[in-house]
Each structure stands twice: as C-alpha cells, then as structure tokens.
Design a binder for these strands. Structure first.
Lengths: 234, 234
DNA sequence: GCCCTGCCATGATCCGCATCAAACGAGAAC
DNA sequence: GTTCTCGTTTGATGCGGATCATGGCAGGGC
C-alpha cells in the first residue's frame, strides 16, 4: 500500500497486496537500515522492489536543490514501475525496511507464464497512478491546513492495528513538507495549531493521536472527490 | 503520448505508441466532438480508451467546485488505467477526438494470449505515473513563471511537424491554470509578460510561436531533474 | 557533568499570487 | 450593421504562506 497524497487506496489489504502467490516467495530479501537509500534517480533500473515491511519515501531533486517527495510506501507496494531504463526517483528508507527484488529481465518470462501476475502488476501501478493524481489535486488546490488534515487522515488509515486512534508518523516534518508542497515551518505551525484546537495530540514527535477526527475530516472535506450525484446536479 | 506535467516522455513515437500490432486495429472507433465528455468520475469503467487523434484533458472535481486537471493526452495514450471499478477522473475532449475502445472484460484474455501486450500496457501506465510525478514536482515547488515556461516547452515538444517553432496550444487559459495549480488571471499575465519580453509570440489564442526558446529553458531549468553527476557531488 | 549536532517550534517580516473588478475582443445570431 | 456571449486581458488590493532569525529539546560522544 502507498500514499501518494491525500488519498490512498481505501481497500485495505487485498489479494493484490499479497505477492507470495505469484512470486512464490522465492525472491531474495534485503534489509535496509533507516535513512539509507535503496536507489537514486539516474541509477540503472535492474530490479523492481517489493516492500515487505517498513516505510520508504520516493522523491525527486531539482537543480536548485529543492526536493519533491512524490510518495510514501509501505508493505505491499512495488517500487520502480514509474521508470524505464533509469530510475527517475530516489528512494530512501524512513524506517528499517525489508524488500524483495524482482529482476526486470525476468518480467517478460513472468508475464508469459502467469497472466494473473500481469493483471496484479497492472492494478498496482494503476493504483499508484491514481494516488499520484489525487496528490496532484491536493497540492494544486488545497490550503496548507487542508493538506495537512488530509495527510494525517491518510496515514491514520494505514494503521490497521490502531482502530484509528494512535498511529505512527514515521517521517520527519521536512519530509511531510516536501510531500505537501509546503515549508517545514508551515507544517510545524499547523501541527501546533491542530494541537491547540484539541484536534490531535502528539504523544511523541513520531506518534500521533487523533482526538477530534471529525474536525479534521470537515476541514479536509472540501478536497474530497465530488460524488457523481452532486456532479450531475452541478 | 501524454503530458501530465512539466515533463512528457521524451522518446517520441516508439513501438509502444503503435497499438495496431497487438490490438489488430479491429477495435471499434468513436468520434467525440470538442468539449464533450468521454467519461465522468464515478462512471462505471467498462472500457479503456485509446486516443487516435485530438486532445483530451483529465481532471478531478472537488466538493467546493475547484478542479484539478491531472493531465492532457493526445494520440497514442491509453485512458482509464488509473481507475479500478469506477472512473476516478473525468475526461473531456479539448478538440474533436477519435478514440478506440478496449473492453475491460477482454483484458485477461488479451494478457493471456499476448504477453507483449502486457508489457506494452505496463510501459504505458508506467510512463503516465512518471509524468504525474513530474507534474507533482512542478506544482509543488515551481514558481508561476517556471510552471508556465516548463509547460510551454512540453507542449512544443509534442508537435513533431513544427521543428520546435510554431505549435498549437489547444487548451484554454483556465485549463492550463487548473493543470498548473494557478488562477487563469496569473496564466494570462505571465503569457503577456513572456510576449513583452519577446520570448514567445501568440499568432492566435490557440497557436504559439517560441521566439526565444533558450530564455524559457533557462527559466524552467531550475526545475529539471538533477543529473546523477551533480547529485553525487551534492 | 559537558558540548555538539540534528530536528523542531515560534516569532517577525515580506512578497507572490489570489481575489475582486472592469474592460476588451472575437465569433455567432440576427 | 447591432447585440449578446464567452473567454481573455489588465488593474488594484489583500492575504497566506515563504523567508529569515532565534531559541528549545533530545540524543550521542566523551
């Protein structure tokens, strides 16, 4: 599963998050320590990476040194599908991460042998595309407050064990800012403001508790996709 | 080919833009008049659409009526890959458009019969994902001027007949604005400013000529992906 | 204990772009 | 020709978030 913005896929764990069926679980596993890189933009793309545990961020760097985080990913995500030849994103582990590798060279053979795998991969990359577009909409039109509220709700939904109460927010303020198209000072200010309003409580810098979920949802609401009924009326 | 932002794929027409090999050219073709919709967000996704000619825009609408254009597409693009079950974007023809349809129900059969088709589709959606991420970076970090310069250069590169001189800019100012995360007044002002500086010349509202391409490139440059050599130095 | 380093919080100021408003131009209908 | 409409251009003003600057806090090495 991944967050590439305001929305993440809401379907939770589905068959397509479980790759053991098609890959047979026989792929080599690698452990990556926190804050080290899995690949850089410009590196030759030899393999796809399947995230088994932990969190990574995907980002691009511009000439002037500015960065845009284009997505966060955790267990179930496949990394590297957006590239062709060379990686166009850099990928850094936020927490300790375990990945399995799928050699690019083996893909044609895997497609030929197992059409289900083709469908599974296509669905995965389609989701990532939808999520990237949702994030584009968030960064393009939402206010700083809305962006942050939407983001917090998204991350909270990824935590299935917590019943939407307490959850980990493993990335730094600067990562959140680079993802949301803000400065880290703005993120920090708005987080403080949300606490002052009694909407959230930071149990630590990297763990958050939603106290008033509804307030956040009301704020983020202006950014939700227009349902068809309303669309046709408008 | 598509623009989902500052970057479009630079490879020009490749084998994967030509779908006649795999689809056999036996798919039904439909003509869509300008400014009518091909599908709406929320519609059931029964088919993919293969654009044969003309331009379309893909967009999302928010509750408060704001819209984000998530991409423009022309000949060679496949539409609908980002969705699953229901369309998450709306798609409107900017110019008269000709599309062919690929029934979703036939996809498993096509994957099973022709693994090359699987690879082709995967490459197409991978490109769209990369382009969406590039646009995310543009909207997230670039100034209004940089966004517009990058956009003009992108569209100009799509016109292969024009040798980078004159080219069509078929979308309205408001569409460009909704794509770039700006207001149409800002787009209009910057277009006028580029003309005043002698960088471009508008032969009509929907046709543009690059007079000083380098100036635009210098402006947009700050937004280019950092090449690996520089990355490693920094 | 000490200092150093990395990350975060918060305050003061500034500027780019949104917003509000009005005028302009081209095309269509008549 | 006139008038209406739709999209664009241009101007005046204000605000949200960037920027610059300072201080705080936690962890690690010694």
């Amino acid at each position: 599963m991944c967050i590439a913005g305001g929305t993440l896929d809401k379907m939770g764990k589905t068959a397509s998050d479980d790759w053991s069926m098609t890959t047979g679980g026989r792929l080599p596993a690698i452990d990556i320590p926190a804050h080290s890189h899995i690949f850089f933009e410009g590196d030759e793309r030899r393999t796809l990476y399947l995230v088994e545990s932990g969190w990574v961020k995907l980002y691009r760097t511009l000439i002037d040194g500015q960065r845009q985080v284009v997505g966060f990913a955790n267990a179930g995500s496949v990394l590297g599908l957006e590239s062709d030849g060379e990686h166009v994103n850099s990928c850094e582990a936020i927490t300790p991460v375990k990945v399995r590798t799928i050699p690019i060279a083996r893909l044609p053979e895997m497609f030929a042998r197992d059409p289900i795998f083709s469908e599974q991969i296509l669905r995965q990359v389609g989701r990532q595309l939808g999520a990237a577009q949702a994030q584009l909409a968030a960064v393009g039109v939402q206010s700083a407050e809305q962006k942050l509220a939407t983001f917090l709700l998204s991350v909270s939904r990824l935590c299935d064990a917590c019943e939407y109460g307490e959850f980990d927010l493993p990335m730094r303020r600067g990562d959140m800012a680079e993802f949301l198209g803000l400065r880290l000072e703005t993120v920090s200010r708005k987080m403080s403001e949300f606490q002052r309003r009694g909407w959230i409580r930071m149990t630590s810098l990297y763990n958050c508790q939603l106290v008033n979920r509804e307030a956040l949802e009301d704020l983020a609401e202006g950014a939700e996709i227009l349902p068809p009924a309303i669309r046709q009326a408008g």
